[in-house]
């Protein structure tokens, strides 16, 4: 019986075409592509602190920290720039993720993972904390918890004041 169920599940999964039926995801435009050089240039133009979160739709811990980033953005979005960098992903996967979590800030698509690689981050997710004009202040490798996020945001605000 279990073998049959596994076989059916495998066939169903294999037959899936991976195309999203989610209208919210379909309404999201393709994320702009970026690389290390253009992303660094973009950061230099931002005259306030920035939190850059590296995520991917296939990354399980990214799902857990997404609501936290939303809360932080709602609270500090006026003072701090929030940017998402989707790495080693597909545009379809990225849109599904954004539709599910409603991360309402700017996101970039980094197919080759060149942004976190150039900044020395390890794994996914990673959160980089920048001062104004792209000055890297600190890096948090792995899932970020509420305390760490709040503390590092406070650190950015103290530096900026």
């Amino acid at each position: 019986m279990i073998r049959k169920l596994v076989l059916i599940a495998f066939v169903v999964a294999a037959c899936g075409n991976g195309i999203s039926d989610n209208p919210e995801a379909a309404a999201i435009p393709d994320l702009p592509e970026t690389d290390a050089v253009s992303f660094a240039a973009h950061l230099e133009t931002i005259d306030r602190p920035a939190v850059v979160n590296v995520w991917a739709s296939w990354c399980l811990p990214c799902r857990s920290e997404a609501p936290l980033l939303n809360t932080a953005f709602e609270q500090y979005g006026d003072e701090i720039e929030f940017i998402g960098v989707d790495v080693q992903d597909t545009q379809a996967g990225a849109k599904e993720f954004l539709a599910e979590f409603g991360l309402d800030f700017d996101h970039f698509f980094d197919r080759n993972r060149s942004v976190p690689n150039s900044l020395g981050g390890l794994g996914t997710p990673i959160t980089f904390f920048f001062g104004p004009h792209g000055e890297l202040v600190s890096t948090h490798n792995g899932i970020v918890d509420e305390r760490t996020l709040a503390l590092n945001i406070d650190e950015l605000l103290q530096l900026d004041s």
């Binding site: 399980l60 811990p61 799902r63 857990s64 920290e65 997404a66 609501p67 936290l68 899932i143 918890d145």
Partner: peptide
């Protein structure tokens, strides 16, 4: 915490182990 964050524990049971998520 998962329910509060809008993550369905039935469809994402693996996330129960990600304690650092909250």
């Amino acid at each position: 915490a998962m329910v509060d964050q809008g993550i369905n524990p039935l469809t994402n049971p693996g996330e129960l182990l990600i304690v650092r998520g909250g």
